[in-house]
Design a protein around this nucleic acid. Structure first.
Length: 413
RNA sequence: GUGGGCGUAGCUCAAUUUGGUUAGAGCACAAGAUUGUGGAUCUUGGGGUUGCGGGUUCAAUUCCCGUCGCCCACCCCA
């Protein structure tokens, strides 16, 4: 599990802020649920047969001898909350987003930590139309934060009635071929046949290839209409009939977005429809869909696609550089800072430093673009030396005009 | 859960091949000097149980065993 330090954390704040702005503007409200839930919540929702539940959960007994688990994902927690608080009796449908840490006890690797962070969205009690809403929201959010070079993969896992037949037929088919399947697949065969399609072991491929997949899972009418809408919206996609996803609650449309330059773990976001989850948790039948994206992976992808990513963030700070250690200057600086933060701008300081060289050095270390230099002269004359480190230009402006100048500068970058 | 790689200063690394003086360098940090404008220069300084434990040896950072941690990949997921 990672510590996130200054220099790094600003990227997280930026991504989180963008998410809040974007999702709220789209009609979503933030929701926060406990990190710790009764283990049963996840075994019932995610499914006993999944890797997440049977080998990746941080599960332990609390003081009351209850089995508790650090949440490995948040969709189940949101559903639990909605059922428990009866939120659907107050509203026809619900739109939530969340930001927070998740825990899975996997072997760490590039793009995979045991504590990782997700930004997710749930659209609850909405049918097929919400599939487009959800996918478009995700796609446009990634555009909004500036991630290009992404690939949207889609699949249709079919509806409940069909799935019963499909399961039966698949079980028959794979049972005949049982001896040619790997151990894991034999286990999947008993627990959840569909997940055999997830197998990447070479030996299993011929068996999977020759399974009559197309006949079992014809793309539904609503899937085809989703395709039409995606085309109208100009969102490129690729159909991948092998995309099954490792959580048992999915049905219907599922999707995944991959990005370049992430190493082996290249899925930045994923999601889909889960119409059964609410019943599984003891609620009413409630159609729902959603997605989540990995914050670490998103930041990595952003940095990969734009080497100046961090610079763009620090450009928006105003570096405050007092170059005299006197009460007059200090008071003057405090004045300017309080005006800046009143308007929501971000300032940066290096306490105890009064040398211009040192300030310039610090400002450059962080990649800050704008600097307010304030010494005895400025304090006496009521001015600010406003410096643009990129343009290598400096201007003496009146204190009362400073905020306006800074705003103007931000608008142009 | 399975494989492979790596652990030396805060960071990046050297010395380990073939055991041998006081384990070095750059960056960073601290102090002094000069410095109201391109983030420096000069001088000085603090920093290390060589991941940890054991073994072999006159002698171990170096060889052997164990252990812990990290990284990458499989698997799986975001």
């Amino acid at each position: 599990m990672d510590d996130i330090l200054p220099g790094e954390i600003e990227k997280w704040q930026w991504v989180e802020e963008k998410a809040r702005i974007f999702f709220e503007a789209a009609g979503f409200k933030e929701i926060r649920t406990p990190l710790l839930e009764p283990t049963e919540l996840f075994t019932r929702s995610i499914g006993e047969s999944t890797d997440i539940v049977h080998k990746e959960m941080y599960t332990f007994e609390d003081r009351g001898k209850r089995s508790m688990t650090l949440r490995p994902e948040m969709t189940a927690s949101v559903a639990r909350c909605v059922v428990e608080k009866g939120l659907l009796t107050q509203a026809k449908s619900l739109r939530f987003y969340y930001i927070g840490p998740m825990f899975r006890a996997e072997r760490p690797q590039a793009g995979r930590k045991r504590q990782f962070h997700q930004i997710g969205v749930e659209i609850i009690n909405e049918g097929a139309a919400a599939d487009l809403e959800s996918i478009a929201l995700l796609y446009k959010f990634l555009q909004y934060v500036g991630l290009s070079d992404i690939q949207l993969n889609l699949n249709d896992l079919g509806e409940e009635e069909g799935r019963v037949k499909v399961r039966k037929a698949l079980t028959e088919y794979f049972s005949k071929e049982r001896s040619r399947l790997c151990k894991d697949c034999q286990w999947r065969l008993e627990k959840n046949v569909l997940r055999v399609f997830d197998c990447k072991i070479k030996e299993c491929q011929p068996v999977i290839e020759s399974a009559p997949w197309e006949n079992f899972f014809p793309l539904s009418e609503s899937f085809k209409s989703l395709e039409e809408k995606l085309k109208t919206e100009g969102i490129p996609y690729r159909i991948n009939r092998r995309l099954v996803r490792g959580l048992d609650y999915y049905n219907g449309v599922v999707f995944e977005i991959t990005a370049e330059g992430l190493g082996a773990q290249n899925a930045v976001a994923g999601g889909g429809r889960y119409d059964r989850l609410y019943q599984d948790l003891g609620g009413k039948q409630t159609p729902a869909t959603g997605f989540s994206l990995g914050v670490e992976r998103l930041i990595a992808a952003l940095e990969k696609s734009n080497p100046d990513f961090a610079k763009l963030i620090f450009q928006r700070y105003c570096y405050i550089a007092p170059i005299a250690n006197s009460p007059e200057v200090e008071r003057y600086v405090t004045d300017i800072v309080s005006e800046l933060i009143k308007r929501g701008y971000r300032c940066m300081k290096t306490p105890g430093v009064y040398g211009l060289d040192a300030h310039l050095k610090k400002a450059n270390q962080f990649g800050v673009r704008y600097m307010a230099i304030i010494g005895s002269d400025e304090a006496a004359k009521g001015t600010v030396a406003f410096k643009d480190l990129n343009a290598r230009k400096q201007e003496n402006i009146l204190k009362k005009d400073f905020l306006f100048k800074f705003e103007e500068a931000l608008r142009s970058c």
